[in-house]
Nucleic acid binder design. Structure first.
Lengths: 171, 171
DNA sequence: TAGATTGTTAATCGATTAACAATC
DNA sequence: TAGATTGTTAATCGATTAACAATC
């Protein structure tokens, strides 16, 4: 992974000692422990907001659930999409979100909507009590202090790649 | 964007001076200049390897081309996918890649294949002369020194979000 | 000229790496 | 006990922030 042994030990020790001097680490229990730290043993319910091709692709992705991240609903505003089925989920209208939240625990909202709706929808869902956003919209969301945002900015990543390609620089 | 004015000036000055003291920056020409640095005015031809839902979603994404990143072909190995149309592109068999490369300039390969094929396919395409990989496979690719890799590790990002959520920490 | 803002140097901060003592 | 490897302290490195002189 391009990481030094020093860094590995340094990082592990932030969370406590997991190894046995002289013998090394027990891979099985270390793996388990890291999973605990990351909270992989608890199930997180996620909703997808924006049922475009990216939103649909994420809904179909199977790897997330294996790590405890479960998609429980998909929302959009386009009437032609409402009712359509993606995997086992019918696309719901965003207007039904407040009602949905009353009856379901939602831990994370995945934002895969067009750029121009980004701020508006982010404000809407945080007002409804969403505390974590996985943001695929290429903008910096301004959210209340207690809301956690994790960004996936695809175009930024691609531009970094383009820059490195132009300047022939690795990573 | 949560960046200090110091950092902005520091970063700009790495590439030269673009501002006028006392007056500030001319946004239009600065924007143009940053585009030049990132190479946004040159067109990059990209191919998608792996026509699953994620690969298809990226093919349909319109924002990349606006920044000069153009998808010119999609490859897979699943026979039932070959010939199927995604936007204007027919899905081609990966075996036809060498022939395709003889007749087309490819700057970037987008890897959206299952994890277990990651290393094998990366080795295959770098051997064929691909110099840049936008890697969506959740592994660290080992590639020759002159190959540029930019990773999008979705599950890592999601786990970071999960961690921050558990420990109630912002960004 | 006076003043606002850039460009640049210096200080600070945090993360990575190195060194080494603790210990199983 | 001897030696290998962890855990931790110290050194290094790079990036961010602060300070300020240059200048339009």
């Amino acid at each position: 992974m391009g990481i030094t042994s020093s860094q590995v030990r340094q990082d592990f020790s932030s969370f406590g000692g997991y190894g046995l001097q002289r013998y090394g680490y027990d891979v099985e229990s270390l793996h388990q422990e890291i999973g605990n730290i990351l909270g992989l043993n608890t199930i997180r319910n996620m909703i997808i907001i924006g049922a475009g091709s990216l939103g649909q692709a994420l809904a179909k992705h199977k790897e997330f659930e294996k790590k405890g991240f479960k998609v429980i609903a998909i929302f959009d505003v386009k009437t032609e999409l409402i009712g359509q089925k993606i995997t086992e989920h019918e696309i719901r209208h965003l207007d039904s979100l407040p009602h949905f939240l009353e009856n379901n625990q939602v831990d994370i909202a995945i934002l895969t909507i067009p750029e121009n709706f980004g701020r508006e929808v982010a404000a809407y869902i945080t007002e409804l009590g969403i505390k974590a956003i996985w943001n695929f919209v290429p903008i910096e969301l301004k959210t209340p202090d207690d809301v956690i945002v994790e960004n996936i900015h695809l175009i930024d990543s691609l531009m970094v790649l383009g820059y490195n390609l132009k300047h022939k620089r690795r990573e």
